[in-house]
């Protein structure tokens, strides 16, 4: 399971962004996950719960003390699942794939490029009303 380290990277970025916004606490984090991202949605949710609000050095496996200062145990994670879509390099049709058979639905060609479905993106942050962790 590599989701733990991915979430660690995510929370580091969340902290940075919160720091640029008056050290506000974060109420909600919205991410986008594609079926080809290599990221399991359930595992991301578990890792997020584990790590949110963890500032205790002893609980931080990589010993990076400033971890997750802007999140709290009540910070929510919203996961938007995006579809796997490929574009055919032969006929340029776009196919919405329901499984991992990389074929153009229009002409059957296997020369297709992924245009959506491999993303793990930070979409937005909602700051908590009035809360602030600068102390």
């Amino acid at each position: 399971m590599h989701e733990r380290s991915l979430v660690r990277g995510l929370l580091r970025q969340v902290d940075q962004i919160a720091a640029e916004h008056d050290e506000a606490d974060v109420a909600e984090v919205t991410v986008e996950v594609g079926p080809l991202s290599g990221v399991e949605v359930d595992l991301v949710k578990i890792a997020f719960e584990e790590q949110c609000g963890v500032v205790d050095l002893a609980k931080d496996p990589e010993g990076e003390g400033s971890l997750a200062r802007s999140t709290t145990a009540s910070t929510r994670l919203e996961v938007l699942e995006v579809p796997l879509i490929v574009r055919c390099t032969q006929c340029h049709a776009e196919s919405d794939l329901s499984d991992f058979v990389f074929r153009c639905v229009s002409c059957g060609s296997g020369e297709v490029q992924v245009i959506s479905g491999d993303e793990f993106r930070l979409i937005s942050l909602t700051l908590a009303e009035g809360a602030n962790h600068a102390r």
């Binding site: 991915l6 990277g9 995510l10 970025q13 962004i17 916004h21 008056d22 506000a24 109420a27 991410v31 993303e119 793990f120 993106r121 930070l122 979409i123 937005s124 942050l125 909602t126 700051l127 908590a128 009303e129 009035g130 602030n132």
Partner: peptide, 14 residues
């Protein structure tokens, strides 16, 4: 301070 949503849209592993 009211709740504020900040749009980011970035690749987490960039």
């Amino acid at each position: 301070m009211p709740a504020e949503t900040i749009a980011i849209d970035r690749d987490i592993q960039a």
